[in-house]
Design a protein around this nucleic acid. Structure first.
Length: 226
DNA sequence: CCAGACGTTGTT
DNA sequence: GTCTGG
DNA sequence: CCAGACGTTGTT
DNA sequence: GTCTGG
């Protein structure tokens, strides 16, 4: 699953790869983004754009968006049956520099690329139009089976899209969803690493560079026992 | 065809 | 919006 | 995801 | 335990 992530770095390369022409984002570094909070999202609507959207999908047809929508993740395998419309037309990418998963003892671990480079999670977005307020734009993160790195602590992980597939994923002209199936796979284990971080990360209010600090000086990417 | 309900995840 | 029931 | 709050009834 | 807020 994916219940926290970070957007602390610079995602200019990802925006370029996605051919983002228009963006309006917060410049604030975020080390610990929790559901219900705003995050940068790249999507295609007459061109690639990058804007802040709220994490937790509120679909366009719901009557009451305030009444909690817990849709922070959606399973890749359920997309064949559910959310077909959004999967066809409202795919998005969430640029991140890492995400967090918890052991059953609530020990958080940070997962990232071996070379610390930014990467992109696959998501779906929607827009809820209010008669008297500005439109509410929200997103959800697609999950798939865990790879071998994550499996010891969790059986799900977010879908991570390779940079070569960004444009295909964002292309709203692609309606044959079987063409996208290969993207919805666990990301290669060998390209990722993880390490334990402070339990301060558990608190959604805690948002500081300390979130990235390894809890122990050695033990990175070692076999993890909990 | 229309009317009416409706959205997910995880349980490491 | 999509899906189901009638 | 985690942290933290949380309890009901009646209003012919 | 469930629900809400971040």
């Amino acid at each position: 699953m994916c219940g926290r992530f970070s957007q602390a770095g610079d995602f200019e390369k990802i925006r370029t790869d996605c051919k983002v022409t228009e963006y309006n984002i917060s410049t604030e570094a975020r080390y610990n983004i929790a559901p219900s909070q705003s995050a940068q999202v790249i999507f295609n609507e007459s061109g690639s754009k990058c804007v802040m959207m709220k994490w937790g999908l509120v679909q366009s047809w719901v009557r009451c968006p305030e009444v909690g929508n817990r849709l922070i993740n959606i399973r890749a395998d359920s997309l064949k049956e559910k959310q077909k419309g959004l999967f066809k037309n409202h795919r998005c990418l969430i640029p991140v520099d890492g995400f967090y998963e918890w052991t059953k003892y609530k020990q958080p671990l940070r997962f990232l690329m071996n070379d610390d480079s930014p990467f992109a999670l696959a998501g779906l977005w929607d827009r809820w139009n209010s008669p008297d307020r500005s439109p509410l734009e929200t997103f959800t993160v697609i999950t798939t089976e865990a790879n071998e790195l994550i499996a010891p602590i969790h059986n799900r992980m977010p879908v991570i899209v390779s940079s070569k597939d960004y444009l295909l994923w964002l292309d709203t002209n692609v309606k044959d969803l079987s063409l996208l199936d290969f993207i919805l796979k666990p990301f290669p284990t060998g390209k990722m690493r993880c390490y334990k971080v402070s339990r301060s990360v558990n608190n959604a209010q805690f948002d500081s560079p300390e979130c990235f600090k390894p809890l122990e000086s050695n033990g990175n990417n070692m076999e993890l026992k909990f």
